[in-house]
Amino acid sequence: MIKEKNILIIDDEEVILNAIKKVVIYEGFTCDTSFSVSESLEKIQETRYGLIICDIMMPKIDGFEFLNILKKRKLSTPVVITTGFSTLENAVKALYEGAIGFIPKPFSVEELTSMIKRGIIYGKIYNEKRTCYLHEKKISLDFIPCPPKYYRLGFDSWVMKKNEKFANIGLTDLFLKSIGMVKEIEFMNTDEAVYQGGNCIKIIDNEDYCHQLLAPISGKIIDINEKIIINKSLLEKDPYFNGWIYKIIATDLDNELNNLTPCSSDI
């Protein structure tokens, strides 16, 4: 009989394991902890988890390898990668390798819980694709995949290359659905620089959890979609066309596309 638990936490530092565990339990989730990837692989066999939170830098098998093992075993448990070595490159790599989120250490409780919350919903949407109730709230579990020709960073953001220099970026329907109700969006300003794997937009949901969207490419913002500011529901209605967020002059578009997943592979 396979047990069910909400969360598996993998980290080689006990303090961090305990800290995350405390928060998780406080938020009302069930969880297991594990000091290494090999130990957690055993646990996965016995228990079905809604979400795995995994460190990158661990002795023997690191977080990226763990993602690969899961991929090979065709296990679709959503994984959130966390690391103290919080470079943009690691964020991009984690999402490219299949993680659904990247949370740099150190994190506050709010940052952690909003990620956990989003991760759990994400797992439910992605794996069960049916209506479910979480904390007594109804969540729509159908999501629209990215159109082909688009590239995506994990399931966070997409980029649509217009030509060598210009591209539109936006957020995926899955990211939006995993947030739930959008209360507020904080945009960056035009002329500001965004970096691949760096934060580019802040979304606050109706429970005041704050979610950061990681930008799929680096460049300078030349335009912000005013229509979203006026009408937030446009994001939900048409996240891939009229719901674009920024127009970007890309700094190194072609190279950076190599770090992204082509959406044509999703179909």
Partner: peptide, 25 residues
Amino acid sequence: AAGVAHEINNPLTGVLTYSSFLLKR
């Protein structure tokens, strides 16, 4: 910086998580 970041961020995780957790309570 790159080398130290990881080393500093881990202990900071303990501090930040526990303190923000306490703050919540």
